[in-house]
């Protein structure tokens, strides 16, 4: 900030996609009202969806997608070497995402189911932090553009970068929604990190947990509540496994 005698440095960013739908990248190009300001804040040196530049000189690497092939592992390691700050963008990069469903099946069955007789080289799906050091994680399926904007502004100006530590319920209640658990749904809102403005429960769908666990979330209590409402452990586990965002918690439960 100029008044402080600090010159805000334009962040040179590269955006890289791996195994994903590229929906998070698309979010970056959304929100027209602030897009010009956002692009003025950063210097895009490598971003396939918005520019043909393929510069290698970036400070911040935004990584979208999970890692599911050997060549992706190598490419990711190279990006890590060049980037000062490596940010995982979206649920796939942060946790593995929907793609992780593959890991539950035999890999040959999966390949033949999807590609028939074509041989495809593939690995079990991993999240980015399984392979390289991640400096900052921005979860969400897709990421929230306003959260990305806020974080980029904070990185550029040197302000604190924080994600909410509390669960989705806070935002859901602020929206004035009727609780979907009360309506008979499984909802992971009480254990999932807020920041999505409770998008799914607002649309009357139970939270799928795309933003991962809230801090000190009470999984045991939520499981007990859902059981009492008549949901089976299988159905609850299935929901927790949806984005692979609660693998640690499922592991701890044994």
């Amino acid at each position: 900030m100029e008044y402080l005698g600090i010159e805000p440095k334009k962040a040179r960013i590269g955006v890289f996609d791996f195994t994903c739908c590229e929906g998070c990248e698309l979010q970056l190009a959304n929100k027209e009202d602030s897009l010009v300001d956002f692009l003025a804040l950063v210097e895009v040196v490598n971003f396939r969806e918005v520019s043909s530049d393929r510069g290698q000189d970036y400070d911040i690497a935004l990584i979208e997608g999970s890692i599911s092939r050997e060549d992706e592992v190598e490419r990711l390691k190279q990006i890590r070497e060049k980037a000062k700050i490596l940010v995982t963008l979206g649920t796939c990069a942060c946790f593995g995402g929907v793609n992780s469903i593959k890991n539950r099946f035999d890999i040959d069955d999966v390949v033949s189911e999807v590609y028939g007789k074509n041989k495809v080289e593939t690995l079990p799906v991993r999240k980015v932090s399984d392979i390289v050091k991640v400096d900052l994680a921005i979860p969400g399926c897709p990421v929230s553009k306003s959260e990305v904007e806020r974080i980029v502004v904070n990185l550029v100006t040197g302000a604190a970068v924080n994600l909410p530590k509390y669960p989705v319920c806070v935002e859901c209640k602020q929206k004035g929604n009727t609780c979907v658990v009360d309506l008979g749904e499984i909802c992971l809102g009480p254990v999932t990190r807020a920041g999505c403005d409770a998008a799914c429960p607002t649309g009357k769908t139970g939270c799928l947990g795309c933003r991962g666990a809230a801090e000190d979330a009470n999984f045991d209590s939520l499981r007990e509540i859902l059981r009492e409402k008549g949901h089976s452990d299988e159905a609850i586990d299935e929901r927790l496994r949806f984005y692979n965002a609660f693998s640690e918690e499922l592991k701890n439960e044994g």
Partner: peptide, 13 residues
């Protein structure tokens, strides 16, 4: 406290 989800719903309403 063991049951509490610490979800803040009580305070919001």
């Amino acid at each position: 406290g063991d049951k509490c989800l610490n979800c803040g719903s009580c305070a919001m309403v």
